[in-house]
Every structure is written in structure tokens, then in C-alpha cells.
Nucleic acid binder design. Structure first.
Length: 801
DNA sequence: CGGCCCCGCGTTTTT
DNA sequence: CGCGGGGCCG
């Protein structure tokens, strides 16, 4: 039998995974193992074998992944791919919900709450219940609600669950269950679902409407799931339910890359898949086509320390490549300079474009120092940040108009725009409308009628009632006009008649200009959406009477982030990419810098405290495996945290990399002590030869005495900048020395309590406290003009007057 | 009713 | 340090 072209260029393991599409399958796909290729080839092969595209349901986590997959499948099987039901969990089930939502008591025109709506609603409810926001922190309530929904705990089941209730009491939020209950009731009353509802309500629908379940079970003969390691319980149950009839469920993922537990992802789903589906076939994609052997082996040596793993042995058949270097810096600023210098040298000598390099960090704020350093050297960069466009106020406002037009029950939208732009309806009036709504158990929109019906109305109240009615009329008119004109035209009209466009046009600021641009972009997306729908109609994929609607566009917009369009800019040489490790998942760069490898940062303190070190290690694994040719790691020994200097110790992950893959540039005698310790106790020093301690002294001497000697004693103590360090010395810094920190004796401080000193910036001050630290003294100084500050003696540049 | 100031707080975030 | 929210004042 002639094998299909689909199999060309696939290795045996990949071929097996493509071919075995009947029944349940687990495809364990290591980093860079061609996962997407296998998944898309499998779908293409299924279609080639006669499976109807409509019978295939393929679920992803991002729109980008879905689009990419569809594109690749189209390349293999052509336009038939359009009929595959493929998209994100949220978008696919939002659509299914929309078609059946009457079965679970929501209006067909339900809108989707974005996180800030949810938070506002929670604040509202806390106020109504007279609960203290200091104890019931909205963010915490929100995440707990999210957790409950992800675990399919409805308010009713929550109230019946002693263990979660006990947990609430322990967390000092005994009333949480009632807040949760009120939240769900209010959402339903408002005809609104949050992101988590899209999964929870889908479960409720499939549970309570057996005919609906049966219909989709029959339709989706094949269910495929990408990034299975990141699915939560709600998603897990949906998958189980939908595939129960045919049993053709294929999940693809990598347990080693499960990094979203904080959002409810359950690594158990992939770990125990074979128990859930005992007849499942397992395929392992273990060959890494992305990275050098060094990188793959180094990553393996780290992840091997995790206990909760699926058995697999990833390997690369590429070059050994360069060893991994570790840059050690004294401060976060110096770290940035070293990284940027190294990066620049790398690009210059290789002739590669800037966009071959990425700087990855654990937390977003770490980008700031990196940006400074890049700007300073004039290197083009871009920050890949996960903000959606509805983070912008102007977008939220315009969307609120559209939401209210689509679904007048949406109180959060109502509240947001009833007086925006200002039309003389103040807080008091809004609260009155809200009061009426609560009293009658209806939405604010419906309660407005009550406002005018009120028997006793003063002149003022009459005036306000008139203003509110004007607003209501405006929304009604806008709602009317969307049936009369095209999508884009309606959107434009809404932007004008709401007054939003005017408000920004009047304001002659750069911010206003950017707001107008964003609005324009949003309107353009309507145009684009409309064109897409028109094309579908022309292709016969869609009924001619079924034109693009505002509802449909809105739903798409609410479930889209602008991640993918931030991709490439016109710059021929590209830009260096800066992003969090989380955002980097799925991406790859020739040169990867992982910065801030320090205890309490990466791994994060929280993770260590809550026993989440394994996930943190997976995160590091993800970071490392982004690199194609060269991975460079860095850490700083001190770092600015919330305005003050903090000491940091090298990350345990640095010590977990098999030293064979590290570039250690020290002489052998020093190696013994300077190497990351994998077995030895920290701080133990070897008899004879140079000890770690000696080395540390030498370095400090070098760094601080040298400078001090050049200048009049006691005048100032400057930190040596990387550029002033000799090349050989710089190599010296390229090692890990986790052993040293806490055992360094410190010379007495040059100061004593009560000393009066002068600081460059803060002026005159008095030393109030001196705290002895590992390698320095922490001075608490009360400045005459700047209040009390904590400074490090080494860096403070103090002068005795 | 809106603007300004001060206080508190501060992982990661595909939807 | 930098942002957002709430409170207070004009």
C-alpha cells in the first residue's frame, strides 16, 4: 500500500501517532518534538481516510494555535478543513452554549463578562452584604470563585461540601459561599457568563440536557485536545462526556510543560489518562528537533528531579552545541548590562537578526531593567505582554455600549456607561436605580422604568429621570440601527452617538490620540469580521440570510486576545523579544537568556512555600527548551524590590543542571569548590587549595578596593560597571557560587549608630540602625529631608561630613 | 460631580 | 517604585 504524502518526513514514532487515530490515544510530546505537525497530520490523515471534517472536534487553548493548525491542515487536505470544529475551548463551547442556552435558563443574547466586570460585581456584592473588603479581598474572592467553577462546584454543591466550607473558615472568609451564590445568581440575572462559566455551564448543559449531549456525542465522532496537560477539571469532564459514545479521544501534551496550575490546570489529567481510558494507546514523541544536545540534556537533568512525571526520554540528534553559561552579577542593573552586552556581542559576531534572541523572566517587572539596558545600547526590542485590548478604558467603554445594546440585562455594562460620557447621572442616581433593581429583583435596565413611575418625584428627580430616559432611548435607537445597517457602519454609529468619539476628539492629548486609534482598530475588526462572514456565505459554508451580527462579533472579540498580531513588525532586522517564561511556551529562539535565576524569584517564594516547586521546575524546563542553539542564564546577588535593595541567592535550579552542560571557566582547583553543588552540603569547604571563601574575598577585594584606591579614600564607593571589568574577570563571573553567601565574615562597618552622613541624593542623615549582613551592612538612615530609608553600605555612596 | 491626592499593595495569566 | 482605588474637597 502506498503511504500517503502526509507521512513524508515523519519519523516512525510520529507516523504511529498519526496512523493510530481509532480509539483513545495519549500522545506524549516532548518539547520541540513536532507535536503540532503530528496533530495536524493526524487530522489530515483522518480526513483522507474518509472521516467527515464535521465529525472532528479539535480543542486548543489559544486562538493562535487553532488558526495555525487549521492553516496546516488546509495545506494538506484543502478547503474541507473549514468544516472541522476547531477552536479554543472557550470559543467552541461559547458557540455550543449560544445554540442551547435556553435549556439552562440563560437568555440567548447572553454576554461575556471580562475579569474587570467580575471584580466590579464582586465589589458590589460585598458592599451589599456589608462584608469588609480588607478581609474579603475581591481578587481572592474572584480566584476562589474561579477555582470552584473550574472544579465544577456550583454554589449548591459548594454549600454542601464541608471541606471547602471549613477551608473558608480557616481563611477567615466564612461568608464566601454566600458571596459565590449571590455572584452566580446576579450573573444569571444579568444574562452574563464569565470565562469560567463557559466551561461550567457547558457541563451543566451536557448534564441536564441528555438530548443535547447525545446530539454532540454523535456529531463529534473524533475529539482531539491540544496541550492536555493544561486542562482543568471542567474541561476534563467535558472531554469525557463528549467522547463517551465513540471513545475516539486523542490528547496531546507534555506533562513536563504543565505550568498553569494556578489557573486550575490539573497535571493529573495527563498523568492518569491511561487509567481514565484503559484501552488507550500511548505514543511518545521523544526526539527534539529544536535544540542542541546540550540544551536537551541539560533540561532533562533538571526535570528528572520531579517525581510526578510520565516516563519519557527526550533526546536531540543535533550538534552538542555550546555549553550553557551562567552570568553572575552584583545587582539587577548589572545583570541587565551583562546580558545585553552578551546578547549584542552574540548578534554582532553571528550576523543574526535581533529577533533571534529572547530574554525570558519570571515576573513582568523584571523587564524594566532589561529595557533600560537595551535602550541604553540602542538595541531594538519588543515586549510581549499578555494584555488584552479590553484592558484599555476606551475599548471597555465602547464594548460596554455594544454589550448593553446586545443584552440590556448586562448591569456591569449599564453601570459603566450610564454616565459615560457624562450626562448628569451621578452616583446617587445610579445607586437609586440599583436599589430599585435589587428591590424588584430585576436588572438595572428594567429598574429604570420604576424610576419614572415613582409617585413622589421632586423637580430634581424628574430632571434626572428624564436624563436616564434619554440614555435608555439612545440605547434603544442604537439597538434598532444595527438591524438597518452593516456591522461596521453600526459600530461607527455607536461610537459617534454614544459620544465616546467626541470625548476623545475634544481632548488634544497623545493618550486621546492613542485611544482613538484603538477605537478605530476595534471598528476595523468589525469590517474584517464582516468580510470573513461574507466570504463564508459566498463559499456556501453559511446561509445567505445569516449575516454577520453584532452579537457574533462581540462574542468573538471577548474571546480574543491580541497576542498573535503582536508578532512581527516591519523591521527587517527584527527586535529582541522580552517576555515572561509563561508567555514563551510554544515559542523558540536561537539565543535564549533566562534572567533572574534567584531563590524567591525563580523559583518564586510563593511556589516554594506552597509546595509548588515541581511546577516551578517545569517552568524552568519550559524556559530552557525554548533555546535552539544557545541558552544563557543569569542572576544578580542584589535586586531592587519595591524600592529597596534585597539580597538574593542563586536559584536552586542552577545547581540542578548537570555540570557537564555548564561552561565552567575556572581552573580545576577552584572548580572543586566553585561548582554548583549537587550532593555536598552547602558551605562546606575543602581542606587545602583555595577555598570558596578565599575566592569570594578576592572578588570583593578586586571589585571594591580597586576602585577605592583610585579615588580619595572615603569619598565614594562606586560599583564597578561590567564594562570596566577586564575580560578575564568577566569570565570569572560566569560561574555559580551558591555555596558562598551565608558564610562570609564581614568586616566591621565603617559607621556606627548615630553617625551623621551625607548621601548624594538624600542629603544629610543620621544612622539609626546597622544590621550585619552576609557581605555588607544594612544601614537604616534617617534623612533630614527624605525620611528614613534602608540602604546598603556598599552601594550607598555615603560621605562622612 | 469630577478631580486630585494619598494610601496600600505588589507571581505567573492561553480564555 | 508605580499603579489603582477610595476618600475627600472644591
Amino acid at each position: 500500500m502506498v503511504e500517503s504524502k502526509i507521512f513524508e518526513g515523519l519519523n516512525p514514532a510520529q507516523r504511529d501517532a498519526v496512523r493510530g487515530y481509532q480509539g483513545a490515544s495519549l500522545i506524549i510530546a516532548g518539547a520541540g518534538s513536532g507535536k503540532t505537525r503530528v496533530l495536524t497530520s493526524r487530522i489530515a490523515y483522518m480526513i483522507e481516510q474518509g472521516v467527515e471534517p464535521q465529525q472532528i472536534l479539535a480543542l486548543t487553548f489559544t486562538n493562535k494555535a487553532a488558526a495555525q493548525m487549521r492553516e496546516r491542515i488546509t495545506a494538506m487536505v484543502g478547503e474541507r478543513s473549514r468544516f472541522i470544529r476547531m477552536g479554543t475551548f472557550h470559543s467552541v463551547f461559547a458557540r455550543i452554549l449560544r445554540e442551547n442556552v435556553d435549556r439552562i435558563g440563560y437568555p440567548q443574547s447572553f454576554t461575556i463578562y471580562e475579569p474587570s466586570d467580575c471584580r466590579n460585581l464582586i465589589r458590589q456584592l460585598l458592599k451589599e452584604a456589608s462584608l469588609d473588603e480588607d478581609k474579603y479581598k475581591p481578587a481572592m474572592i474572584l480566584s476562589r470563585i474561579s477555582q470552584a467553577k473550574n472544579n465544577l462546584l456550583t454554589p449548591a454543591s459548594y454549600l454542601a461540601n464541608d471541606s471547602v466550607l471549613a477551608e473558608d473558615r480557616r481563611m477567615q472568609i466564612p461568608q464566601f459561599a454566600h458571596v459565590y451564590d449571590a455572584y452566580c445568581k446576579r450573573c444569571k440575572q444579568n444574562g452574563a457568563m464569565d470565562f469560567d462559566d463557559l466551561l461550567l455551564q457547558t457541563n451543566i448543559l451536557l448534564r441536564d440536557a441528555p438530548d443535547v449531549l447525545a446530539r454532540y456525542q454523535e456529531q463529534f465522532k473524533y475529539v482531539l485536545v491540544d496541550e492536555y496537560q493544561d486542562t482543568n477539571y471542567a474541561q476534563y469532564v467535558i472531554i469525557r462526556r463528549l467522547s463517551a459514545l465513540h471513545g475516539n479521544v486523542c490528547v496531546v501534551g507534555d506533562d513536563a510543560q504543565s505550568i498553569y496550575s494556578f489557573r486550575g490546570a490539573k497535571i493529573e489529567n495527563i498523568l492518569t489518562f491511561r487509567k481514565d481510558y484503559p484501552k488507550a494507546k500511548t505514543f511518545k514523541l521523544e526526539q527534539n528537533y529544536r535544540s542542541t544536545r546540550t540544551i536537551v540534556d541539560a533540561a532533562n537533568s533538571v526535570i528528572a528531579r520531579n517525581t510526578r512525571r510520565l516516563e519519557k526520554e527526550c533526546f536531540s540528534e543535533g550538534d552538542a552545541g555550546e555549553k550553557i553559561r551562567i552570568l553572575r552579577a552584583y545587582t539587577d542593573r548589572e545583570e541587565a548590562e551583562m546580558v545585553v552586552k552578551d546578547l549584542r556581542d552574540r548578534i554582532r559576531t553571528s550576523g543574526d537578526a535581533w529577533n533571534e534572541a529572547a530574554i525570558l523572566y519570571r515576573t513582568n517587572h523584571q523587564s524594566l531593567v532589561m529595557e533600560d539596558a537595551l535602550r541604553h545600547k540602542g538595541i531594538p526590542y519588543r515586549i510581549y505582554k499578555g494584555s488584552s485590548f479590553y484592558d484599555h478604558k476606551e475599548i471597555k467603554d465602547l464594548l460596554a455600549y455594544i454589550r448593553l445594546i446586545v443584552n440590556p440585562l448586562d448591569d456591569e455594562a449599564f453601570r459603566r456607561i450610564v454616565n459615560y460620557p457624562a450626562r448628569g447621572i451621578g452616583d446617587t442616581s445610579v445607586e437609586r436605580i440599583d436599589g430599585l433593581a435589587r428591590e424588584r429583583g430585576v436588572s438595572m435596565w428594567e429598574a429604570v422604568d420604576g424610576l419614572v413611575e415613582e409617585r413622589v418625584v421632586s423637580a430634581v428627580q424628574k430632571a434626572i429621570a428624564r436624563k436616564v430616559m434619554d440614555f435608555v432611548r439612545l440605547i434603544r435607537e442604537l439597538s434598532q440601527l444595527r438591524t438597518e445597517m452593516g456591522l461596521y457602519e453600526a459600530g461607527h454609529e455607536i461610537a459617534i452617538r454614544s459620544g465616546i468619539l467626541d470625548a476623545y476628539k475634544k481632548e488634544n492629548t497623545p493618550e486621546a490620540a492613542s485611544a482613538l486609534e484603538n477605537i478605530e482598530e476595534l471598528l476595523n475588526s468589525m469590517q474584517l469580521f464582516n468580510e470573513q462572514v461574507e466570504a463564508q456565505i459566498r463559499n456556501g459554508e453559511r446561509d445567505g440570510s445569516d449575516r454577520a451580527t453584532l452579537e457574533e462579533w462581540l462574542q468573538t472579540v471577548m474571546l480574543t486576545t491580541d497576542q498573535d498580531k503582536a508578532d512581527e513588525e516591519a523591521d527587517p532586522n527584527g527586535k529582541v523579544t522580552l517576555m515572561t517564561v509563561h508567555s514563551a511556551k510554544g515559542l523558540e529562539y536561537k539565543y535564549v537568556y533566562i534572567v533572574g535565576l534567584e531563590e524567591n524569584l525563580f523559583p518564586s517564594q510563593r511556589a516554594v512555600e506552597t509546595g509548588g516547586i515541581e511546577e516551578e521546575r517545569r517552568l524552568f524546563y519550559v524556559a530552557l527548551t525554548r533555546a535552539k542553539s544557545v541558552a544563557t542564564l543569569s542572576y544578580a546577588e542584589t535586586r531592587f524590590k519595591w524600592g529597596s535593595m534585597e539580597f538574593s541567592r542563586p536559584s536552586c535550579f542552577l545547581r540542578e543542571i548537570d555540570t557537564r552542560h555548564l561552561d565552567i571557566t575556572l581552573s580545576s582547583e577552584e572548580d572543586e569548590d566553585m561548582l554548583p553543588k549537587q550532593t555536598r552540603d552547602r558551605g562546606a569547604s575543602k581542606p587545602g587549595g583555595a577555598t570558596a571563601l578565599d575566592e569570594l574575598r578576592r572578588r570583593f577585594d578586586y571589585r571594591f578596593k580597586q576602585k577605592a584606591n583610585e579615588e580619595p579614600l572615603g569619598k565614594s564607593r562606586t560599583l564597578v560597571t561590567p564594562s570596566s571589568i577586564s575580560p578575564t574577570r568577566q569570565k570569572l563571573t560566569a560561574i555559580v557560587s551558591p555555596v558562598l553567601q551565608s558564610h562570609t565574615p564581614v568586616a566591621e562597618s565603617d559607621y556606627k549608630e548615630g553617625d551623621v552622613v551625607t548621601h548624594m541624593k538624600f542629603g544629610r542623615g543620621t544612622i539609626r540602625n546597622i544590621e550585619k549582613l552576609a557581605a555588607d551592612h544594612k544601614l537604616t538612615i534617617e534623612f533630614d529631608d527624605y525620611g528614613t530609608k534602608t540602604l546598603l553600605e556598599k552601594f550607598a555612596k555615603l560621605v562622612k561630613p
